[in-house]
Amino acid sequence: MSTRTTAQLEGVTFRALITLVFAFLLLPVLIVILTSFTPQNFPAIPQEGLSLKWYQELLADQRLLSALTVSLIVSTVSAILSAIIGTIAAIGFVRGEFPYKEQISTVMLLPMIISPVITGIALVRYFSTIQLPSGFPALILGHTVLSLPYVFLLVRSELLTYDRDLERASRVLGADPVTTFRHVTGPIISPAILAGAFIAFVVSFGEFTATQFLISPGTSTVPVVIYTMLRTGLTPTINALSVVLIVVMLVLALASRKLSSA
């Protein structure tokens, strides 16, 4: 066999392998979406026409709608909180000078390193100790901590590339520090902050493992409901709910990516 055909064969094999890896990565999500449109009573690939019946089912189920509401509230509030706290911390770590700065900043990333099960039991015990009510307060605070590292990393990298001459110019042009932040620094770093908030929302919206400890009877979130339903049996309602989750998360994540690359 000539070297040329060997190379061609290698190329074809490699492409085939890559296609398989992409399939492995993406098919599970695609099958969830596809089978949500089945007219049958179990998640099958629809062969005779699509049906929206499981989405209608979703709209009729008070428990699922309530979970969706809870998820939206918790994720929105915690995203805003972690955007604010993450931004403040990022500014402090980028602009501040103190010993062992780099090492200490690792602490800010701990919530994404420690297993969420441990975070979950630690938080639920702690919240009961400080008498923070379970349900919304616990969920929101917990999700804020869990999504904080993402905002921190995003805003920090934005600030590291920010040209501080812009602030100097603003001051010399007659603006005080607060005005400078409102009109110059704020608007310039706010896409990164917003991108961070969106990612925080996505992280919060999909969080299950720590969340299962923090919910109270009236405040189940969407991932918790999906998990519970999975344990009791496969119905296409799970698919419909999953697709809602996917759509919300993807829209926000894409928006975030647009903002942070702009």
């Binding site: 812009l166 100097r168 001051r171 010399v172 007659g174 603006a175 005080d176 009109h183």
Partner: peptide, 17 residues
């Protein structure tokens, strides 16, 4: 502070917003 000095300044990086 700089904003009270009535100074004009052009930067090497231009520092245009």
């Amino acid at each position: 502070p700089p904003e009270k000095r009535n100074i004009g300044m052009a930067f090497q990086s231009t520092a245009l917003f």
